[in-house]
Design a protein around this nucleic acid. Structure first.
Lengths: 126, 126, 126, 126
DNA sequence: GTGGTCTAGACCACG
DNA sequence: GTGGTCTAGACCACT
Protein backbone atom coordinates (compact mmCIF):
# COMPACT_ATOMS: atom_id res chain seq x y z
CA UNK A 1 0.00 0.00 0.00
CA UNK A 2 2.77 2.43 0.97
CA UNK A 3 6.24 2.30 -0.53
CA UNK A 4 9.29 3.45 1.45
CA UNK A 5 12.60 4.45 -0.09
CA UNK A 6 15.27 4.57 2.58
CA UNK A 7 17.72 6.30 0.27
CA UNK A 8 15.36 9.18 -0.40
CA UNK A 9 16.36 12.30 1.48
CA UNK A 10 12.68 12.82 2.29
CA UNK A 11 12.14 11.56 5.85
CA UNK A 12 10.29 8.30 6.23
CA UNK A 13 7.44 9.78 8.25
CA UNK A 14 6.85 12.23 5.42
CA UNK A 15 6.95 9.51 2.80
CA UNK A 16 4.25 7.68 4.74
CA UNK A 17 2.13 10.77 5.28
CA UNK A 18 2.42 11.74 1.62
CA UNK A 19 1.58 8.21 0.59
CA UNK A 20 -1.66 8.22 2.59
CA UNK A 21 -2.50 11.72 1.43
CA UNK A 22 -2.26 10.47 -2.12
CA UNK A 23 -4.38 7.39 -1.50
CA UNK A 24 -6.99 9.47 0.31
CA UNK A 25 -6.97 12.30 -2.22
CA UNK A 26 -7.36 9.98 -5.17
CA UNK A 27 -10.24 8.21 -3.44
CA UNK A 28 -8.45 4.88 -3.05
CA UNK A 29 -9.20 5.09 0.67
CA UNK A 30 -12.75 6.27 1.22
CA UNK A 31 -14.07 8.90 3.61
CA UNK A 32 -14.64 7.73 7.19
CA UNK A 33 -12.83 4.46 6.60
CA UNK A 34 -10.27 3.50 9.21
CA UNK A 35 -6.51 3.70 8.76
CA UNK A 36 -4.39 0.73 9.89
CA UNK A 37 -3.37 0.96 13.54
CA UNK A 38 0.06 2.33 14.38
CA UNK A 39 1.28 -1.03 15.65
CA UNK A 40 -0.04 -2.96 12.67
CA UNK A 41 1.43 -0.62 10.08
CA UNK A 42 4.70 -0.49 11.98
CA UNK A 43 4.94 -4.27 11.77
CA UNK A 44 3.92 -4.42 8.12
CA UNK A 45 6.49 -1.86 7.05
CA UNK A 46 9.11 -2.98 9.60
CA UNK A 47 9.33 0.57 10.84
CA UNK A 48 9.59 2.10 14.28
CA UNK A 49 6.10 2.83 15.69
CA UNK A 50 7.29 6.31 16.63
CA UNK A 51 7.76 7.04 12.95
CA UNK A 52 4.25 5.84 12.08
CA UNK A 53 2.89 7.93 14.91
CA UNK A 54 4.65 10.98 13.53
CA UNK A 55 3.26 10.31 10.06
CA UNK A 56 -0.28 10.05 11.46
CA UNK A 57 0.18 13.28 13.42
CA UNK A 58 1.25 14.91 10.20
CA UNK A 59 -1.89 13.71 8.42
CA UNK A 60 -3.99 14.97 11.31
CA UNK A 61 -2.46 18.43 11.20
CA UNK A 62 -2.97 18.50 7.44
CA UNK A 63 -6.69 17.89 8.06
CA UNK A 64 -6.70 14.68 6.08
CA UNK A 65 -7.85 12.56 9.02
CA UNK A 66 -9.60 12.71 12.37
CA UNK A 67 -8.96 10.53 15.39
CA UNK A 68 -11.46 8.93 17.74
CA UNK A 69 -10.06 8.02 21.12
CA UNK A 70 -10.10 4.32 21.74
CA UNK A 71 -11.29 3.55 18.23
CA UNK A 72 -8.66 4.73 15.75
CA UNK A 73 -7.91 7.17 12.99
CA UNK A 74 -10.35 7.85 10.15
CA UNK A 75 -10.34 9.62 6.82
CA UNK A 76 -11.84 13.11 7.03
CA UNK A 77 -14.06 14.66 4.40
CA UNK A 78 -11.96 16.74 2.07
CA UNK A 79 -12.88 20.39 2.19
CA UNK A 80 -11.12 21.65 -0.84
CA UNK A 81 -10.47 19.36 -3.74
CA UNK A 82 -7.33 17.27 -3.42
CA UNK A 83 -6.33 18.02 -6.98
CA UNK A 84 -6.80 21.73 -6.47
CA UNK A 85 -4.46 21.62 -3.51
CA UNK A 86 -1.91 19.56 -5.41
CA UNK A 87 -2.03 21.99 -8.30
CA UNK A 88 -1.40 24.82 -5.89
CA UNK A 89 1.56 22.94 -4.40
CA UNK A 90 2.92 22.24 -7.85
CA UNK A 91 2.60 25.91 -8.68
CA UNK A 92 4.64 26.90 -5.62
CA UNK A 93 7.37 24.33 -6.19
CA UNK A 94 7.56 25.06 -9.88
CA UNK A 95 7.79 28.77 -9.16
CA UNK A 96 10.67 28.24 -6.75
CA UNK A 97 12.48 26.01 -9.23
CA UNK A 98 12.08 28.51 -12.03
CA UNK A 99 13.19 31.44 -9.91
CA UNK A 100 16.35 29.53 -9.03
CA UNK A 101 16.97 28.61 -12.64
CA UNK A 102 16.38 32.16 -13.80
CA UNK A 103 18.86 33.41 -11.21
CA UNK A 104 21.45 31.12 -12.84
CA UNK A 105 20.86 32.76 -16.19
CA UNK A 106 18.51 30.20 -17.73
CA UNK A 107 15.86 31.75 -19.98
CA UNK A 108 12.12 31.06 -19.97
CA UNK A 109 12.30 29.31 -23.31
CA UNK A 110 15.07 27.04 -22.08
CA UNK A 111 12.97 26.12 -19.06
CA UNK A 112 10.03 25.28 -21.31
CA UNK A 113 12.32 23.17 -23.47
CA UNK A 114 13.57 21.28 -20.41
CA UNK A 115 9.98 20.62 -19.34
CA UNK A 116 9.11 19.22 -22.75
CA UNK A 117 12.18 17.00 -22.70
CA UNK A 118 11.33 15.70 -19.25
CA UNK A 119 7.79 14.88 -20.30
CA UNK A 120 9.14 13.13 -23.37
CA UNK A 121 11.53 10.92 -21.40
CA UNK A 122 8.79 10.07 -18.93
CA UNK A 123 6.41 9.02 -21.69
CA UNK A 124 9.14 6.92 -23.28
CA UNK A 125 10.09 5.39 -19.96
CA UNK A 126 6.46 4.42 -19.28
CA UNK B 1 27.65 40.12 -2.21
CA UNK B 2 26.15 37.07 -0.53
CA UNK B 3 22.78 37.05 1.17
CA UNK B 4 21.96 34.68 4.03
CA UNK B 5 18.44 33.66 5.00
CA UNK B 6 18.52 32.17 8.48
CA UNK B 7 14.95 30.91 8.19
CA UNK B 8 15.79 28.89 5.12
CA UNK B 9 16.17 25.18 5.88
CA UNK B 10 19.12 25.13 3.50
CA UNK B 11 22.24 25.23 5.70
CA UNK B 12 24.22 28.45 5.85
CA UNK B 13 27.39 26.96 4.40
CA UNK B 14 25.40 25.73 1.39
CA UNK B 15 23.75 29.10 0.87
CA UNK B 16 27.19 30.66 0.77
CA UNK B 17 28.63 28.01 -1.53
CA UNK B 18 25.64 28.23 -3.87
CA UNK B 19 25.83 32.01 -3.82
CA UNK B 20 29.45 32.03 -4.92
CA UNK B 21 28.83 29.27 -7.45
CA UNK B 22 26.22 31.49 -9.02
CA UNK B 23 28.44 34.57 -9.04
CA UNK B 24 31.30 32.57 -10.53
CA UNK B 25 29.17 30.69 -13.03
CA UNK B 26 27.57 33.86 -14.32
CA UNK B 27 30.97 35.50 -14.67
CA UNK B 28 30.35 38.16 -12.03
CA UNK B 29 33.56 37.02 -10.33
CA UNK B 30 36.30 36.51 -12.89
CA UNK B 31 38.68 33.62 -13.30
CA UNK B 32 41.77 33.70 -11.03
CA UNK B 33 40.34 36.56 -8.97
CA UNK B 34 40.50 36.16 -5.22
CA UNK B 35 37.55 35.35 -2.99
CA UNK B 36 37.20 37.24 0.30
CA UNK B 37 39.33 35.65 3.01
CA UNK B 38 37.70 33.22 5.43
CA UNK B 39 38.09 35.56 8.36
CA UNK B 40 36.97 38.66 6.51
CA UNK B 41 33.80 37.08 5.14
CA UNK B 42 33.12 35.58 8.57
CA UNK B 43 33.20 39.05 10.08
CA UNK B 44 31.15 40.64 7.32
CA UNK B 45 28.40 38.06 7.58
CA UNK B 46 28.76 37.67 11.36
CA UNK B 47 29.23 33.96 10.89
CA UNK B 48 31.71 31.57 12.45
CA UNK B 49 34.88 31.19 10.35
CA UNK B 50 34.48 27.42 10.40
CA UNK B 51 31.18 27.74 8.58
CA UNK B 52 32.79 29.90 5.91
CA UNK B 53 35.60 27.38 5.69
CA UNK B 54 33.08 24.63 5.09
CA UNK B 55 31.41 26.65 2.34
CA UNK B 56 34.78 27.24 0.68
CA UNK B 57 35.66 23.54 0.98
CA UNK B 58 32.41 22.77 -0.76
CA UNK B 59 33.29 25.11 -3.61
CA UNK B 60 36.72 23.50 -3.80
CA UNK B 61 35.29 19.99 -4.08
CA UNK B 62 32.86 21.24 -6.72
CA UNK B 63 35.87 22.36 -8.74
CA UNK B 64 34.76 25.99 -8.77
CA UNK B 65 37.89 27.27 -6.99
CA UNK B 66 41.48 26.44 -6.13
CA UNK B 67 43.28 27.42 -2.96
CA UNK B 68 46.85 28.55 -2.35
CA UNK B 69 48.00 28.23 1.23
CA UNK B 70 49.05 31.52 2.70
CA UNK B 71 47.68 33.44 -0.27
CA UNK B 72 43.97 32.80 -0.56
CA UNK B 73 41.24 31.13 -2.55
CA UNK B 74 40.85 31.83 -6.26
CA UNK B 75 38.29 31.22 -8.98
CA UNK B 76 39.16 28.22 -11.16
CA UNK B 77 38.65 28.05 -14.90
CA UNK B 78 35.36 26.33 -15.59
CA UNK B 79 35.93 23.08 -17.45
CA UNK B 80 32.36 22.06 -18.05
CA UNK B 81 30.05 24.90 -18.92
CA UNK B 82 28.28 26.26 -15.87
CA UNK B 83 25.03 26.63 -17.74
CA UNK B 84 25.19 23.08 -19.04
CA UNK B 85 25.49 21.78 -15.50
CA UNK B 86 22.67 23.99 -14.30
CA UNK B 87 20.42 22.80 -17.11
CA UNK B 88 21.16 19.21 -16.14
CA UNK B 89 20.28 20.01 -12.52
CA UNK B 90 17.07 21.69 -13.61
CA UNK B 91 16.20 18.63 -15.65
CA UNK B 92 16.61 16.34 -12.65
CA UNK B 93 14.60 18.53 -10.29
CA UNK B 94 11.88 19.14 -12.85
CA UNK B 95 11.65 15.42 -13.52
CA UNK B 96 11.21 14.68 -9.83
CA UNK B 97 8.58 17.36 -9.51
CA UNK B 98 6.62 16.07 -12.46
CA UNK B 99 6.79 12.47 -11.34
CA UNK B 100 5.34 13.52 -7.99
CA UNK B 101 2.62 15.55 -9.67
CA UNK B 102 1.75 12.74 -12.02
CA UNK B 103 1.47 10.37 -9.06
CA UNK B 104 -1.12 12.76 -7.65
CA UNK B 105 -3.21 12.46 -10.81
CA UNK B 106 -2.16 15.66 -12.51
CA UNK B 107 -1.95 15.37 -16.30
CA UNK B 108 0.86 16.47 -18.57
CA UNK B 109 -1.23 19.27 -20.04
CA UNK B 110 -2.10 20.57 -16.60
CA UNK B 111 1.60 20.64 -15.69
CA UNK B 112 2.36 22.62 -18.82
CA UNK B 113 -0.45 25.01 -17.97
CA UNK B 114 0.97 25.51 -14.47
CA UNK B 115 4.40 26.24 -15.95
CA UNK B 116 2.94 28.87 -18.26
CA UNK B 117 1.05 30.47 -15.39
CA UNK B 118 4.18 30.58 -13.25
CA UNK B 119 6.17 32.21 -16.02
CA UNK B 120 3.37 34.72 -16.50
CA UNK B 121 3.29 35.75 -12.83
CA UNK B 122 7.10 36.04 -12.79
CA UNK B 123 7.12 38.28 -15.82
CA UNK B 124 4.42 40.45 -14.27
CA UNK B 125 6.26 40.56 -10.94
CA UNK B 126 9.41 41.75 -12.68
CA UNK C 1 39.42 -1.84 11.18
CA UNK C 2 40.99 1.56 10.51
CA UNK C 3 44.53 2.48 11.46
CA UNK C 4 45.56 6.06 12.20
CA UNK C 5 49.13 7.33 11.94
CA UNK C 6 49.39 10.62 13.81
CA UNK C 7 52.84 11.34 12.42
CA UNK C 8 51.57 11.12 8.86
CA UNK C 9 51.14 14.53 7.26
CA UNK C 10 47.95 13.24 5.69
CA UNK C 11 45.10 14.60 7.82
CA UNK C 12 43.28 12.19 10.11
CA UNK C 13 39.92 12.63 8.42
CA UNK C 14 41.51 11.73 5.12
CA UNK C 15 43.22 8.66 6.54
CA UNK C 16 39.84 7.49 7.80
CA UNK C 17 38.05 8.26 4.53
CA UNK C 18 40.78 6.57 2.49
CA UNK C 19 40.75 3.60 4.82
CA UNK C 20 37.03 3.05 4.37
CA UNK C 21 37.25 3.71 0.65
CA UNK C 22 39.75 0.90 0.46
CA UNK C 23 37.66 -1.49 2.56
CA UNK C 24 34.57 -0.69 0.49
CA UNK C 25 36.32 -0.77 -2.86
CA UNK C 26 37.89 -4.13 -2.14
CA UNK C 27 34.55 -5.54 -1.05
CA UNK C 28 35.55 -6.08 2.58
CA UNK C 29 32.51 -4.02 3.58
CA UNK C 30 29.48 -5.06 1.57
CA UNK C 31 26.94 -2.91 -0.25
CA UNK C 32 24.15 -1.50 1.94
CA UNK C 33 25.89 -2.59 5.13
CA UNK C 34 26.15 0.02 7.86
CA UNK C 35 29.30 1.88 8.80
CA UNK C 36 30.10 2.33 12.50
CA UNK C 37 28.23 5.32 13.92
CA UNK C 38 30.04 8.63 14.18
CA UNK C 39 30.06 8.55 17.96
CA UNK C 40 31.08 4.90 18.22
CA UNK C 41 34.01 5.25 15.85
CA UNK C 42 35.02 8.47 17.57
CA UNK C 43 35.24 6.62 20.87
CA UNK C 44 37.03 3.61 19.41
CA UNK C 45 39.69 5.73 17.75
CA UNK C 46 39.77 8.34 20.56
CA UNK C 47 39.10 11.01 18.00
CA UNK C 48 36.72 13.96 18.06
CA UNK C 49 33.31 13.11 16.53
CA UNK C 50 33.57 16.13 14.25
CA UNK C 51 36.66 14.66 12.64
CA UNK C 52 34.84 11.38 12.00
CA UNK C 53 31.92 13.37 10.63
CA UNK C 54 34.27 15.12 8.23
CA UNK C 55 35.68 11.78 7.09
CA UNK C 56 32.17 10.45 6.50
CA UNK C 57 31.18 13.61 4.62
CA UNK C 58 34.20 13.05 2.41
CA UNK C 59 33.08 9.49 1.66
CA UNK C 60 29.60 10.81 0.91
CA UNK C 61 30.85 13.37 -1.57
CA UNK C 62 33.02 10.70 -3.17
CA UNK C 63 29.84 8.71 -3.75
CA UNK C 64 31.07 5.74 -1.71
CA UNK C 65 28.21 5.92 0.81
CA UNK C 66 24.71 7.25 1.38
CA UNK C 67 23.34 8.47 4.69
CA UNK C 68 19.91 8.10 6.25
CA UNK C 69 19.19 10.56 9.04
CA UNK C 70 18.40 8.86 12.28
CA UNK C 71 19.47 5.48 10.92
CA UNK C 72 23.10 5.65 9.90
CA UNK C 73 25.53 5.66 7.00
CA UNK C 74 25.53 2.85 4.47
CA UNK C 75 27.75 1.59 1.67
CA UNK C 76 26.53 2.70 -1.77
CA UNK C 77 26.61 0.55 -4.87
CA UNK C 78 29.75 1.35 -6.80
CA UNK C 79 28.89 2.80 -10.19
CA UNK C 80 32.36 3.07 -11.65
CA UNK C 81 34.66 0.21 -10.85
CA UNK C 82 36.81 0.95 -7.82
CA UNK C 83 39.86 -0.61 -9.42
CA UNK C 84 39.40 1.39 -12.59
CA UNK C 85 39.43 4.59 -10.59
CA UNK C 86 42.45 3.51 -8.60
CA UNK C 87 44.36 2.65 -11.77
CA UNK C 88 43.55 6.09 -13.12
CA UNK C 89 44.84 7.67 -9.90
CA UNK C 90 47.99 5.58 -10.08
CA UNK C 91 48.50 6.72 -13.66
CA UNK C 92 48.32 10.37 -12.67
CA UNK C 93 50.66 10.05 -9.69
CA UNK C 94 53.11 7.90 -11.63
CA UNK C 95 53.09 10.43 -14.46
CA UNK C 96 53.87 13.27 -12.09
CA UNK C 97 56.67 11.28 -10.48
CA UNK C 98 58.24 10.41 -13.81
CA UNK C 99 58.02 13.96 -15.12
CA UNK C 100 59.87 15.14 -12.03
CA UNK C 101 62.48 12.44 -12.38
CA UNK C 102 62.96 13.18 -16.07
CA UNK C 103 63.44 16.87 -15.24
CA UNK C 104 66.29 15.77 -12.98
CA UNK C 105 67.98 14.02 -15.86
CA UNK C 106 66.93 10.46 -15.10
CA UNK C 107 66.32 8.36 -18.21
CA UNK C 108 63.34 6.16 -18.97
CA UNK C 109 65.39 3.00 -18.64
CA UNK C 110 66.68 4.09 -15.25
CA UNK C 111 63.10 4.69 -14.08
CA UNK C 112 62.10 1.22 -15.23
CA UNK C 113 65.10 -0.23 -13.41
CA UNK C 114 64.09 1.58 -10.20
CA UNK C 115 60.57 0.18 -10.52
CA UNK C 116 61.89 -3.36 -10.89
CA UNK C 117 64.13 -2.89 -7.86
CA UNK C 118 61.26 -1.57 -5.77
CA UNK C 119 59.06 -4.49 -6.72
CA UNK C 120 61.91 -6.86 -5.87
CA UNK C 121 62.44 -5.41 -2.38
CA UNK C 122 58.70 -5.50 -1.74
CA UNK C 123 58.47 -9.16 -2.72
CA UNK C 124 61.43 -9.96 -0.49
CA UNK C 125 59.98 -7.96 2.38
CA UNK C 126 56.71 -9.85 2.11
CA UNK D 1 65.28 30.54 -14.65
CA UNK D 2 62.79 29.28 -12.08
CA UNK D 3 59.17 28.55 -12.89
CA UNK D 4 56.45 28.94 -10.26
CA UNK D 5 53.03 27.26 -10.43
CA UNK D 6 50.72 28.88 -7.92
CA UNK D 7 48.11 26.17 -8.36
CA UNK D 8 50.54 23.42 -7.44
CA UNK D 9 49.95 22.10 -3.93
CA UNK D 10 53.72 22.12 -3.44
CA UNK D 11 54.59 25.29 -1.50
CA UNK D 12 56.29 28.05 -3.43
CA UNK D 13 59.44 28.07 -1.32
CA UNK D 14 59.85 24.38 -2.10
CA UNK D 15 59.27 24.93 -5.80
CA UNK D 16 62.05 27.51 -5.75
CA UNK D 17 64.42 25.35 -3.70
CA UNK D 18 63.75 22.33 -5.93
CA UNK D 19 64.26 24.47 -9.00
CA UNK D 20 67.70 25.61 -7.85
CA UNK D 21 68.62 22.12 -6.71
CA UNK D 22 67.89 20.94 -10.21
CA UNK D 23 69.88 23.69 -11.88
CA UNK D 24 72.79 23.09 -9.54
CA UNK D 25 72.62 19.31 -9.76
CA UNK D 26 72.56 19.31 -13.53
CA UNK D 27 75.51 21.70 -13.64
CA UNK D 28 73.57 24.60 -15.15
CA UNK D 29 74.76 26.71 -12.23
CA UNK D 30 78.42 26.06 -11.53
CA UNK D 31 80.17 25.42 -8.22
CA UNK D 32 81.08 28.57 -6.22
CA UNK D 33 78.99 30.78 -8.47
CA UNK D 34 76.69 33.21 -6.71
CA UNK D 35 72.93 32.87 -6.45
CA UNK D 36 70.78 35.96 -7.13
CA UNK D 37 70.18 38.04 -4.01
CA UNK D 38 66.99 37.55 -2.05
CA UNK D 39 65.71 41.01 -2.98
CA UNK D 40 66.57 40.68 -6.66
CA UNK D 41 64.97 37.27 -7.05
CA UNK D 42 61.93 38.41 -5.07
CA UNK D 43 61.45 41.25 -7.52
CA UNK D 44 62.03 39.09 -10.59
CA UNK D 45 59.51 36.48 -9.50
CA UNK D 46 57.14 39.00 -7.89
CA UNK D 47 57.27 36.97 -4.72
CA UNK D 48 57.50 37.90 -1.07
CA UNK D 49 61.19 38.11 0.03
CA UNK D 50 60.34 35.98 3.06
CA UNK D 51 59.47 33.14 0.71
CA UNK D 52 62.76 33.46 -1.17
CA UNK D 53 64.59 33.55 2.16
CA UNK D 54 62.88 30.32 3.18
CA UNK D 55 63.81 28.67 -0.11
CA UNK D 56 67.46 29.67 0.34
CA UNK D 57 67.42 28.35 3.92
CA UNK D 58 66.11 25.10 2.56
CA UNK D 59 68.94 24.88 0.03
CA UNK D 60 71.43 25.65 2.78
CA UNK D 61 70.11 22.88 5.02
CA UNK D 62 70.21 20.50 2.09
CA UNK D 63 73.91 21.28 1.72
CA UNK D 64 73.49 22.56 -1.81
CA UNK D 65 74.84 26.04 -0.98
CA UNK D 66 76.96 27.96 1.51
CA UNK D 67 76.54 31.54 2.58
CA UNK D 68 79.21 34.20 3.12
CA UNK D 69 78.15 37.05 5.35
CA UNK D 70 78.02 40.34 3.54
CA UNK D 71 78.74 38.72 0.20
CA UNK D 72 75.95 36.33 -0.67
CA UNK D 73 75.01 32.72 -1.20
CA UNK D 74 77.15 30.38 -3.31
CA UNK D 75 76.87 26.93 -4.82
CA UNK D 76 78.61 24.29 -2.71
CA UNK D 77 80.58 21.39 -4.08
CA UNK D 78 78.34 18.39 -4.33
CA UNK D 79 79.44 15.56 -2.05
CA UNK D 80 77.38 12.74 -3.37
CA UNK D 81 76.30 12.70 -6.95
CA UNK D 82 73.12 14.65 -7.61
CA UNK D 83 71.77 11.92 -9.81
CA UNK D 84 72.48 9.29 -7.20
CA UNK D 85 70.46 11.27 -4.69
CA UNK D 86 67.63 11.79 -7.13
CA UNK D 87 67.55 8.08 -7.91
CA UNK D 88 67.32 7.35 -4.22
CA UNK D 89 64.45 9.84 -3.88
CA UNK D 90 62.70 8.29 -6.84
CA UNK D 91 63.10 4.88 -5.26
CA UNK D 92 61.44 6.04 -2.05
CA UNK D 93 58.54 7.79 -3.75
CA UNK D 94 58.00 4.94 -6.16
CA UNK D 95 58.03 2.47 -3.29
CA UNK D 96 55.40 4.45 -1.42
CA UNK D 97 53.23 4.74 -4.51
CA UNK D 98 53.44 1.03 -5.22
CA UNK D 99 52.70 0.06 -1.63
CA UNK D 100 49.55 2.20 -1.77
CA UNK D 101 48.51 0.71 -5.09
CA UNK D 102 49.14 -2.81 -3.88
CA UNK D 103 47.00 -2.12 -0.82
CA UNK D 104 44.17 -1.25 -3.22
CA UNK D 105 44.47 -4.62 -4.89
CA UNK D 106 46.51 -3.61 -7.92
CA UNK D 107 48.99 -6.28 -9.03
CA UNK D 108 52.68 -5.86 -9.83
CA UNK D 109 52.08 -6.51 -13.52
CA UNK D 110 49.34 -3.91 -13.64
CA UNK D 111 51.71 -1.38 -12.07
CA UNK D 112 54.34 -2.18 -14.68
CA UNK D 113 51.74 -1.78 -17.40
CA UNK D 114 50.73 1.63 -16.03
CA UNK D 115 54.37 2.70 -15.99
CA UNK D 116 54.82 1.68 -19.62
CA UNK D 117 51.67 3.55 -20.59
CA UNK D 118 52.83 6.67 -18.80
CA UNK D 119 56.20 6.57 -20.53
CA UNK D 120 54.44 6.10 -23.84
CA UNK D 121 52.17 9.12 -23.39
CA UNK D 122 55.11 11.23 -22.29
CA UNK D 123 57.15 10.28 -25.35
CA UNK D 124 54.20 11.06 -27.58
CA UNK D 125 53.50 14.34 -25.82
CA UNK D 126 57.15 15.39 -26.25
C1' DG E 1 48.13 38.07 7.01
C1' DT E 2 46.29 33.37 4.45
C1' DG E 3 43.90 28.48 4.35
C1' DG E 4 43.47 23.95 6.81
C1' DT E 5 42.91 20.72 10.68
C1' DC E 6 41.38 19.43 15.11
C1' DT E 7 38.99 19.63 19.60
C1' DA E 8 35.02 20.62 22.55
C1' DG E 9 30.49 21.25 23.22
C1' DA E 10 25.87 22.56 21.82
C1' DC E 11 21.49 22.08 19.23
C1' DC E 12 18.43 20.15 15.71
C1' DA E 13 15.68 16.67 13.00
C1' DC E 14 14.82 11.92 12.55
C1' DG E 15 13.83 6.92 14.17
C1' DG F 1 20.01 6.06 19.48
C1' DT F 2 21.38 8.28 14.48
C1' DG F 3 23.57 12.04 11.19
C1' DG F 4 24.12 17.13 10.37
C1' DT F 5 25.01 21.99 11.42
C1' DC F 6 27.02 25.63 13.97
C1' DT F 7 29.91 28.08 17.35
C1' DA F 8 34.25 28.89 19.84
C1' DG F 9 38.85 28.59 20.22
C1' DA F 10 43.31 26.54 19.35
C1' DC F 11 47.35 25.19 16.46
C1' DC F 12 49.85 24.52 12.13
C1' DA F 13 52.16 25.56 7.57
C1' DC F 14 52.77 29.03 4.30
C1' DT F 15 53.38 34.04 2.44
Amino acid sequence: MIHIDYRDSKPIYEQIADGFENLIGRGVIEKDSQLPSVRLLAMELSINPNTIQKAYSELLSRGMTYSVKGKGIFVASQKESFKERKLSELFDKMRKLILEATASGISGDEILSVLVNVQKTIREGA
